[in-house]
Design a protein around this nucleic acid. Structure first.
Lengths: 101, 101
DNA sequence: TGCCAATGCAACAATATTGTTGCATAATTA
DNA sequence: TAATTATGCAACAATATTGTTGCATTGGCA
């Protein structure tokens, strides 16, 4: 149980950040985006003013917990959304409380 | 939107901690428990070995985000679970991704 | 009143997280 | 080959989080 607890911790913390939720929202609209694309879009559409490196870190966090999946095309890293951790692992724990009503 | 983002951040981070999820699980079984009761139960049923103060802090975090509601009886503070933030605010953002399928 | 039980608050240390800058690497392209 | 593009990695600073210990406060009870 320890392992799944750790994974849950990482998952919840991963989405407990505005910038990362904006990144996820952006990827939900359009898959296979590069770091720079995501960076530019999230920057312009929401007033999030961080460096490219900061975004790189955020993407890594999301990749580590499996929310983002990656694919290389030349020297461009394309990021896509994997909703499974969000819809399965994540809401799983919360769902309990809904069922209990 | 800034405010609700901050609230979401706090909510997700609040439950992104094993001890706090165990506390919530414990309160889901039985409402109106004091700090010491929760402390003793979570400690014995799960091997979480922290001080009373650590638990006090965790309870504060949960209270701040509205997951725990409080009621004083003499000098005993009774904690109860309020599932609303979990079922509404929280799953709200995640729910989007389910609907998009 | 005097003591005990249940909490809260403050200070401190140890870590973890977040963001920046600078430099390195690897694929493209002129 | 040389310049450009897209990234990654490392070091550092600023904050935030987590946990501990010690002391203070407040209500209930002998």
């Amino acid at each position: 149980m320890k392992g799944s607890d750790d994974q849950l911790n990482r998952l919840y913390r991963a989405i407990g950040d505005t910038t990362r939720r904006r990144i996820i929202d952006e990827l939900a609209l359009r898959d296979r985006q590069s770091l720079f694309e995501i960076y530019a879009r999230v920057l312009s559409e929401h007033g999030i003013n961080h460096s490219r490196q900061a975004f790189s870190r955020h993407l890594s966090v999301l990749e580590e917990v499996g929310i983002i999946e990656v694919e290389w095309e030349g020297n461009t890293k394309l990021h896509s959304l994997n909703k499974t951790p969000l819809t399965d692992s994540l809401s799983g724990w919360i769902e309990k409380f809904k069922e209990q009503k």
